[in-house]
Simulated scan of single mutants.
Amino acid sequence: MRGWWREIAGLVLPVACGGCGRPRTELCPRCREELAGPGPRRVRPLPEPAGLPAVHAAAPYADAVRSVLLTHKERGALSLAGPLGSALAGAVEAAAGRWDVSETGPLLLVPVPSSRRSVRARGHDPTRRIALAAAGRLRRRGRAARVVPVLRQRRNVADQSGLGARGRFANLAGALEVVSGGARLMEGGRVVLVDDLMTTGASLTEAARALSAVHLPFIPGQGGATAENGGVESGFVRPMAAVVACSPSSFDPNRN
């Protein structure tokens, strides 16, 4: 009900820019340009955790980008999923690189799951919504893509926002698993983990661990895929990752 009401309210109530608050615009040109960032690039948190897949991000998490993400996630400005999805689509393309769909299948966007408690409190799942928007944008660009929400939380976790780096990793260790039948949904495509934001890399590391435990018995056309290029090694899922934003220090080109 809460998510439905937000959808209706967004159609009839005055809007303001999700980045700077400028009235009568969902996202002003200046904030839209900031969300696009300097172009997607490989990013690494410091320190970089073992097991973190190669991550590409669209923009640094600061100023207008931070405001847009929070406005979408916490304030329920659902229409912002479109521009956020466009930014994520660019990061997915950068992560995927040259990927021949005719030989190896579509891009499979796997969202890092939110807790059921958070989804109930917010009235929506922000990462999944952005992932769906990104997949739609990729298809309009001529790239086969779909969202496969195969990860779920196997136990309750604490709110990550109040935890330091060590606490985040301890909080998430072993918390995710692949749903029954999830391996079949990932066959024949290139798996890309997606999230709205990376800080310490704890969520993506745990998501990658959960996927790496899944064995795919038959992957058509992926004989040459390797762990390094985000494919499959010995039949196990080896994902890449893409996010809308990450901390500015992780985005520093001198470290990547």
Rank of each mutant, 00 (worst) to 15 (best):
R168I: 00
R42I: 10
G19A: 00
A96E: 07
G231C: 02
M1N: 10
A62E: 13
R152E: 15
R209H: 14
A9T: 07
V244T: 04
A165N: 06
A134D: 06
P14Q: 11
A81D: 10
L151D: 08
V232C: 05
N256T: 15
E103S: 11
A9S: 13
V150K: 04
A77G: 05
P111I: 00
L185Q: 15
P53R: 07
A210R: 07
P40I: 09
K73T: 02
V15Q: 14
A183C: 08
A64P: 01
L216P: 04
Q160K: 04
I219K: 09
P38F: 10
P40N: 07
G90E: 11
V237Q: 09
P83M: 09
P14D: 07
P253I: 02
E26W: 04
A64M: 00
L78A: 11
G164W: 04
L70N: 05
G76C: 12
G164D: 15
C17F: 05
R24H: 11
R98Y: 11
G90H: 05
M1R: 12
V68Q: 05
L185S: 12
G223T: 06
A227N: 08
N156E: 14
R75M: 09
D100G: 03
P111E: 06
V179Y: 01
N254M: 09
V157M: 01
R168N: 03
P45Q: 01
G39T: 12
A242I: 07
A245V: 02
G18N: 00
G90T: 06
A121L: 05
S79I: 11
S161Y: 04
P47T: 10
A131N: 04
R137F: 11
